[in-house]
Structures are given as C-alpha cells and as structure tokens.
Nucleic acid binder design. Structure first.
Lengths: 160, 160
DNA sequence: CTGATAATTGGTATATTATAACATCGCAAG
DNA sequence: CTTGCGATGTTATAATATACCAATTATCAG
C-alpha cells in the first residue's frame, strides 16, 4: 500500500505540478481547464483533507469566481469525472486525487481527529472484493472503500 | 463470501424471525424495542434495497407513527447503533442488517439496475484494508466498503 | 409504591448537501 | 455565417440531516 497524505513533502511544488499535469492532460484531450476548475483543484490540493462543496463555494465567492452552488458542483463534477479528484462518500466531500493519470480504485483513510484524508492504494482489497462479487455474478463498476479511524500522528499525540 | 439479497427465500418468515431476534436482543439488553423502531426495522427488512430516511418517514406518517424527520432518524440511529441495520453511505440510505448479532464489517453490492442492496461478507477485503492501514499506523474504527454495479439477474435480463 | 433518573417522544426550526431548469455566451467545425 | 456544443450565470427548489426544547414514559433504587 502506498500512501500519500500523512508524510511531509514540498507542498507548493506538489500543487504546482499537479495543476500542470491536469492542464497538460486537458490540453491533450480537448478539455477546457477553465479558471474555476483550476482554482477548485488548487483548493483541494492545498489540503490533505476533504472539502465540502459549499466550503469551496465560499472561497470562489470571495474571489469572484462564482456565487451559486452549481458553480462549485460543476467544477467538482468535472474534476471527478476526469480523475483529478475523488468524492469521499462518507463525508459528502471532495479531495484531490493523489495518483492522477493512473487508473485506480482509491482507498481513503479518514482521520477523525485531524480530518486528514489519505488516499491509499490497496489493490488487494479491491481486487478481492471484485473477484468475490464476480463469483456471485455481480459486476462491480465502482468500488467505494473508506476507512474511518485515527492516524498515527494523532494517536501519538494523545496516547490514543 | 456469503451473500443475502439476490437469492429467493421465504420473505415473510425472514422478516418475522429478524424482528423476533431484534426483540429478544433488546429484551436481554434492556433496550426498548418501541413501535416506531419495530416498524422501521420491518420496513427495511421488507425489501432488499436501501430506503432513504424520508421514504421511511412517509410510511410512518401514513400510519400515524410520526411526522417529523427526527422520528425517522432517531429510529434509524437506534437500529444502526445496535446492529439491526446499516447505513449505505453511497446512497445516503439505510438497509436492514442481514447478519444481526454477528460482529461484522458489512460489504454492500448495490445494483444500479434494480436497486437491490446485497450485504456480503468479505473478511478478506476488510481484513486486508485493516492490516495495510495498520502498517502505516492508522487505526481503522469503521470500514465502509460498497460496490456499485449490476447484479447477475439484471445482467441476464438485458444481456448486460 | 414513590420519587429520581434516564430514555423516548413530539415538535419547530434550521442547517447542509445537491440538482433541475433555463437563458446566455463563446468558440470551433462545417 | 450558422450551427452545435460546452461552459457559465442564475433562480429556485429538492433531498438529506441535525439542534434544540418541552413533555411524556420507562426503569429502578429506596
């Protein structure tokens, strides 16, 4: 399992390169990487936690990029549809994709204490789910795997 | 993986026995299995799909058991808290537990075509998730595993 | 039984999340 | 040019969920 979200890294460059990657992908595929879409992606990248649509909308509104819910939802739909972000069902919120470009079934580790959302890869778990489902004739189109708990740092913090 | 939801079974008796089991459990543990709680459990058991809180509330209202959202949410909270029902995050809806009494991490298979929600047991998948998370110091308190797709019957139905 | 306590109910109000619907704009293909 | 498509801007409303307070009912120690 590789895991992004709980380690240290150069955040500014991490955002820049992710945005550049998205921009490139859109250019190659005839998609419009508009200001609102870019800004929403930046907001999501800026924090390793999930943001609600209305939380994002508040920022867009302050910045004059849009004031109504559909503005945020449309940008989020775009980002999710093209794999730049994911929806975290458990939180009814959104988070930037930590592995854009790669095809993957994300697994989220949600820390109840610090609200960090780490995106992990657990090939095994989703593979097992898919094959077990297949045995009963069920075809899995999308798997949601999300674990709520407490991350290492927070457990150390209060001896939890 | 055991799987309840897509096979045939005697539904009336399946409901009766589940209700009786819940009633017994409550009696043993000093919990109140009130009319609203019983009725909500029956409603959930009556269908192998997830029901929204407001859908349940509509029935309760017709039957004079309560008219406001908190009535439904409180009964659902009770049922979920004591393991008689589960919340399906992906659908923001609720379904009766297919394995009451047993400690388990449910896995849901949600059919997009017929809306059936089957509760499966996939020890392997959740176990793998838990152990992989543990390796990074994350303690999993609750795992959400839900697969959206098409069940065997619906795939046959339209050659899907 | 009785009073204290906790659990449940009934209700109002409101918060939060999400989408439907429609007019307009801008751009690129034909 | 004009047609069509995707994106935008906006209004309105749907769907999901919770905070809070008053009143009632169950439970249990004494």
């Amino acid at each position: 399992m590789s895991l992004i979200g709980f380690e240290h890294h150069n955040h500014a460059s991490c955002i820049e390169s992710a945005v550049a990657a998205a921009e490139g992908y859109c250019a190659e595929n005839g998609l419009q990487f508009t200001p609102v879409r870019q800004r929403v992606l930046e907001l999501l990248l800026a924090q390793h936690r999930a943001m609600g649509a209305y939380e994002i909308l508040d920022v867009l509104r302050e910045e004059g990029l849009g004031a109504q819910p559909p503005v945020a939802y449309r940008a989020l739909d775009f980002l999710v549809r093209h794999g730049f972000a994911h929806r975290v069902e458990k939180l009814n919120a959104f988070t930037a994709c930590a592995h854009p470009g790669e095809t993957h079934s994300p697994v989220f580790l949600i820390c109840r204490a610090c609200n960090t959302v780490a995106e992990a890869q657990a090939q095994g778990a989703t593979g097992m789910l898919a094959s077990a489902a297949r045995d009963s004739g069920f075809r899995v189109d999308r798997a949601v795997v999300e674990a709520e708990g407490v991350c290492a740092r927070c457990r150390e913090g209060h001896a939890g």
